[in-house]
Design a protein around this nucleic acid. Structure first.
Length: 278
DNA sequence: AATGGGACCTGCGCGC
DNA sequence: TGCGCGCAGGTCCCAT
């Protein structure tokens, strides 16, 4: 489940690995992940594009491109990993025997290959003129790092929905997914079922701090490798060892030894300690 | 506005 | 061993 820390980890590695490179060829093994334009045009327009800049917005990766003929308008390749998407570089498949889940391979002019793998085909690749005009981008809420505690509090006070569900709403705040929502709420000692506007000033401030700290720590440890996420190199992220509640239903709370509970909120597995979180 | 459900997909682990 | 089933979670979409 790539969330902000996982996508940021990949973004930083991509910066070091592929900036300035020219795409020589694109191999599409499964066109389903290419949302626009059609496969043939997608390939044609990416050929000879140079990776100019890489940007992350929430969980979305954006490659700003430049064509060799600089008069052409700059396009962008956007990549959303959704749940099981991976970016692997340098890939060793060489297009000869692609791994089962390798859906698209980008071959650079120097021969190195960037693979997009995605078991469940939920991932989305788009080649578009202006990423700023994407519906997803226009509706995206601010990232926790881009707002103040006061602003966060002001945002929460307008909402009656359950705090956990709200943290997962990318239009409200972007970058947080199921794993870090669970972890941040545990650290802030807040019951995930609480209506957002029921949080006190103190609780709001603590939650805001814990969200940012949790994300920062996860970035430092290069993400959480549960399910399919790996770093660009294919190595696992190292943050799982610090998880307090996620996927620990029935196990003892590290703080108070109570049993961690699992409930469903907004259709998502929600883990919390009923004794620690009020 | 809030809430719940289904859809998109595949692979895993479970019980039998 | 193999089969069917529920489940995983990011996002969108629809109904109430």
């Amino acid at each position: 489940m790539p969330e902000l820390p996982e996508v940021e980890t990949i973004k930083r590695e991509l910066d070091k690995a592929i900036l300035g490179k020219r795409i020589a060829d694109v191999v599409v093994n499964n066109a389903k992940v290419i949302r626009e334009p059609k496969k043939e045009r997608f390939i044609k327009e990416l050929k000879n594009a140079i990776i100019k800049k890489i940007i992350r917005k929430g969980k979305l990766l954006i490659f700003e491109l430049r064509s060799r003929q600089t008069r052409l308008p700059r396009k962008s390749l956007t990549i959303h990993l959704k749940m099981t998407g991976q970016l692997i570089y340098p890939s060793t498949t060489l297009g000869t025997s692609p791994r089962k889940a390798t859906r698209v391979s980008f071959k650079f002019a120097d021969g190195k290959i960037l693979d997009f793998n995605d078991t469940r085909l939920f991932g989305e690749l788009r080649l578009i003129d202006d990423w700023r005009k994407m519906k997803f981008i226009k509706e995206l809420g601010p990232e926790p790092f881009d707002i103040t505690a006061g602003k966060f509090r002001q945002m929460l006070m307008k909402k009656k929905t359950k705090i956990k569900v709200l943290l997962l709403d990318q239009k409200f705040i972007s970058g947080i997914g199921n794993l870090y929502a669970n972890e941040a709420l545990f650290r802030a000692k807040i019951d995930p079922r609480r209506p957002a506007n029921s949080l006190s000033d103190k609780e709001t401030a603590l939650l805001f701090k814990e969200i940012k700290d949790t994300l920062q720590e996860a970035i430092h440890y290069k993400g959480s490798s549960v399910d399919q996420y790996v770093q660009l190199s294919g190595k696992s992220g190292n943050y799982v060892q610090f998880h307090q509640v996620y996927d620990r239903a029935g196990e003892k709370c590290f703080k108070c030894k109570s049993k961690i509970e699992r409930i469903s909120l907004g259709g998502r597995g929600t883990y919390f300690c009923p004794a620690c979180q009020k």
